[in-house]
Design a binder for these strands. Structure first.
Lengths: 191, 191
DNA sequence: CGAAACGTTAAATTTTTTTTAAACAAATTA
DNA sequence: TAATTTGTTTAAAAAAAATTTAACGTTTCG
């Protein structure tokens, strides 16, 4: 293909960007992030910091949409406010390091999982203990309470491990254990 | 609290189970799984293998709902069909090992992410190379094409690492690197 | 100040997703 | 084979979520 004019080149660059932005959006969709929020992140990732109006123009959507989208991405810790000096408009910048993205995004969720679930397990186990120790309850039910108790007790091991994983990621130790290979020889073999 | 009757105990057991099922559902919601599918998984996790009708009764929902819910959970590799001999009805069983759940659920998504995104990056880079090598294109655009190319090139490192992570998890090596602690002394300090 | 610009909130609309009821096909059993 | 049961598909209804328009409060700058 030959680009005799800048206009064609412009279009081609946009096509290239769109390919990647769409993939990023699809990926984030996989993890429960809205497709439009994913598109927003992908765009910011390739375009650099943007104002809400620039986003609106780029994506052809309303400003409140951009506002809420950015807010959600901030909740996931993958977008931050920036200050462009001399400028009145606020700008926002996407986390450009995917390793950091991974870390911010997943550790937040895993921490929450461990916290919430460990909490409910403890509460549930208290209820079950009452039954197990109650002489007025039939053996059938005591048995069931005990089985359920054990399943829950067992799950704790997982949540504790999850917290450990989170720690390894947050401290960066994970990259000692599984090193980043800047010039992976398997590069092209992976697919 | 004192359980003078089995009826009260029954209720209390159900309360305990519901606490944990709700947490599991909330957690799965976090990862983009429908709340009802999460509830379904949580229920199967605590109740053992179930038929569609048992699920329907337990959750008070329609059978097609159960059917589609189970199907989705099967796609995530966290529920499997089982055969209860002598029984006509099909039964389904949830993955009870959360480590296995983690592995099945996340590696599938990460593998997909790496594959899809690496593919689009390669396609996009081909387009950009054309522009970079085209003498009829202005330096401005060439510059932009090159910057974009570099950002994309850079991202590959991440996807390659992600594939490595997936491999460590699938082979179980991850548990050599980050051991499971069956009786963690920090047990109760974690929260 | 007062006017304009910016970002957010609120309400209304649209779209998408989930859920169900009904119909269907496959399989089992009597 | 006929009748029943089971699971899925399809179409409709209901519910939930995303998007937009309009309105609001703040800030900035003339």
């Amino acid at each position: 293909m030959d680009h005799s004019s800048d206009q064609e080149a412009r279009e081609s660059i946009n096509n290239a960007k769109d390919l990647v932005v769409d993939s990023i959006a699809e990926t984030m969709d996989l993890y429960g992030v809205t497709r439009s929020a994913g598109t927003l992140y992908g765009t910011m990732y390739l375009e650099g910091d943007m104002t809400l109006d620039e986003m609106r123009e780029k994506l052809g959507m309303s400003k409140p949409s951009m506002s809420t989208g950015v807010k959600k991405l901030q909740e996931f810790n993958v977008v931050k406010k920036t200050f462009r000096k001399g400028k009145r408009k606020q700008t926002y910048v996407a986390e450009k390091d995917f390793f950091q993205f991974f870390s911010n995004f997943f550790t937040q969720k895993w921490e929450r999982e461990a916290k919430v679930n460990l909490h409910s397990v403890r509460e549930a186990q208290e209820l079950l203990i009452q039954i197990i120790n109650d002489d007025n309850v039939s053996n059938n039910l005591k048995e069931e309470a005990n089985e359920t108790y054990q399943i829950m007790e067992n799950s704790k091991t997982y949540y504790i491990w999850l917290n450990k994983l989170v720690e390894k990621i947050e401290t960066g130790e994970i990259f000692d254990l599984i090193p980043i290979d800047p010039n992976d020889p398997d590069h092209d073999e992976n697919f």
